[in-house]
Design a protein around this nucleic acid. Structure first.
Lengths: 381, 381
DNA sequence: GTGAAAGCGCTAACAA
DNA sequence: TTGTTAGCGCTTTCAC
């Protein structure tokens, strides 16, 4: 049972003449290491050694007495206090652009897969693509002394990111690399991914391929557009500026598509910079009676799970969210371990580039070749 | 610029005869309140007062000097230290069953919507439906001194939850209510939701309605099954046990459906306990050439966004994930505020029951009536 | 083997 | 208006 502090009427809430800042609080106070020490009849230091089991010698008898006290008082070490003393919080921050875009939960799950095994806990933040919120989150996480930070959403200026990377937290970028500053990075090859997509469409015989881009101040989107351009040029095709546009919302996507399709000699295919937009395009087509892929072939990017549903059948470039998350977490873990063990030798930054794959389904004009791998994942949760 | 600690060769890393535990660390040390105090030529206390701006009087001049020092040193208060001193971490934990089930990100987004405005940060955990992991997460969050906890996944024993609720953290249950112990709770009426679903199917003339249930040790799933049974009974129909079954994975769902459809006088409709499973059923039907809704009408539960895609068209009971998250966060915020302000008066626990709605689309046999509300949400992130 | 003491960075009560 | 001081709960050094 935890130490219960009773409301003590005779007591004036004073300790050594100085008023206690936290007189009597409602409920049950948590036991502290001092309580345990007192109960076991030893010093705090001994209890601490016992708890840390870092190879200190403690007599079997003392050991047993402490264990009993811990059990009795249901003692749980206060991680905040430990953190202050150790100068580490055992906590890693993960900043994503949007928790409701299925890409990110997948990435987070990858991070959890590896971090969850350790003693670390995840501090999560979602920026909704708002740079201000991103800055806020970074600040707040640094103040909370995260030991490491995975940034899967960076709209910040390169320079700000660089400052962060050079600070004394370990940072892994999981969305874009930095040109000037070397930093641990795990990304996919966005240019290649886009080329894969566009080349596939060209392979189907399309010559007028549009591109629905994301906001070009976000690096991966810019790279995807670059890949699109490259693919066209390598095929000896001219780029028609009117076929490249971006949109911000569902209705915006519809408007953009309307505009693109109104161009003389309209596109017969479109490469969309991410699946959420691609799906919006699919919906747009369904509503307008535009047949996919007969009238318009569509390829997306990210390969979120929705795309594989038989009613959707979206061909998409797999951006390996889970693998990115996993790799980023591994890189971070290695980094943190190194810092913990040794304070001077710094390994050079790692830059992992994962290879995206094109997952072919119906929307590009192929027969769905996919051998839909039955997931062994529980469906309830 | 932050205070840089240079590697000082002449210095023996000793302070007052006692060896410093953290000699010289790589990189830039963060400035502390003492650094600021020194730089501004005032005491720590004054700096603290300045930072907290809790209406302490500080001369304009001092104020300016401190501000300058803060700026100069890029001082960021250490939230861990603040937490230790204040006995609060300004952090709230959110435990969900699965981050990759779209229901939960939606709930989390709701929580963020209201918590994000405040100074609190989210500590996130996903249990994957594993009770052991759930227990671990709770422990770890308590050790990290979360000020509040939102539990959107409870497989724990009632009694354990009750102990938690009676502890000195504020807890809001967002998935099930407790029978014995009063506790802040935000849930939807699962029984009603299930009735809505089944009654709708009965309204379509179905008389043989199957139920694909979730694991019945999880309260909401049990309640949904109860609602299913109630609806049948109120309609004067017999319950055929063979039409009620559960499954664990995608292939399991397929097996369950195969079994159910093999029963003599097979069902013409099925009410599925959540959308992930319902979608698995839809996929199953598509693969087998079973037409939905002609051969089999399907209604799910949760109304995850995927259902509204034109290629899916899943009729489903909206479980108001976002609203639940938002409400839970508001309740929690109120609770934490109260605790912060006053330590004795305890408001009675709130129990909010949200009303689920049936969202009608094609899979039940209706013409899709849905007026698909263009979201004004950005599609990129 | 065990304990006393100092200190992690911050806050608040009280004195000046 | 500002400073002194005593913690918050824990870890580690160093002395016993």
């Amino acid at each position: 049972m935890a130490a219960t502090v009773l409301t003590c009427e005779s007591c004036d809430g004073t300790i050594g003449g100085v008023r206690n800042r936290f007189p009597t609080r409602r409920g049950t106070q948590r036991a502290t290491i001092s309580d345990v020490a007192a109960a076991a009849g030893v010093s705090k230091a001994t209890v601490s050694k016992f708890l840390g089991d870092k190879g200190y010698y403690i007599s079997a008898e003392t050991r047993e007495r402490i264990a009993a006290a811990v059990r009795e008082l249901e003692f749980q070490p206060n991680a905040i206090a430990q953190g202050l003393s150790n100068r580490r919080s055992n906590t890693v921050g993960v900043i994503v652009a949007s928790i409701t875009n299925p890409f990110y939960p997948e990435l987070i799950a990858g991070v959890e897969e590896v971090i969850g095994e350790s003693e670390y806990t995840l501090l999560l933040g979602s920026t909704d693509g708002r740079p201000a919120k991103e800055a806020d989150l970074v600040r707040s996480m640094l103040q909370r002394q995260v030991d490491g930070l995975i940034m899967a959403a960076v709209t910040m200026e390169d320079e700000a990111v660089a400052r962060l990377v050079e600070s004394d937290v370990d940072v892994v970028l999981a969305s874009r690399a930095l040109d000037a500053t070397p930093a641990d990075t795990v990304v996919i090859d966005n240019v290649l991914g886009a080329r894969l997509a566009v080349e596939h469409l060209l392979g189907h015989g399309h010559r007028r391929v549009a591109h629905l881009a994301g906001p070009l101040n976000v690096v991966p989107f810019r790279l995807r557009r670059d890949g699109y351009l490259e693919a066209l040029r390598s095929a000896g095709l001219d780029v028609d500026e009117r076929l490249v546009c971006d949109a911000t919302t569902e209705s915006g996507a519809a408007a953009a598509m309307t505009a693109v399709l109104a161009v003389p000699d309209p596109p017969t295919a479109v490469f969309v910079a991410n699946d959420r937009m691609a799906i919006a395009v699919l919906e747009f087509c369904a509503a307008r009676g535009i047949r996919v892929p007969a009238d318009l072939a569509v390829v997306g990017f990210d390969n979120i799970w929705v795309g594989r549903l038989s009613g959707v059948g979206l061909t998409s470039v797999d951006s390996r969210a889970r693998a990115v998350g996993r790799t980023a977490a591994q890189t971070l873990a290695r980094r943190m371990r190194a810092r913990h063990a040794d304070q001077s030798v710094v390994a050079p930054p790692e830059r992992v580039v994962l290879r995206p794959d094109l997952v072919v389904r119906r929307s590009c004009g192929c027969e769905s070749t996919e051998n839909d791998d039955d997931e062994i994942v529980p469906l309830f949760f």
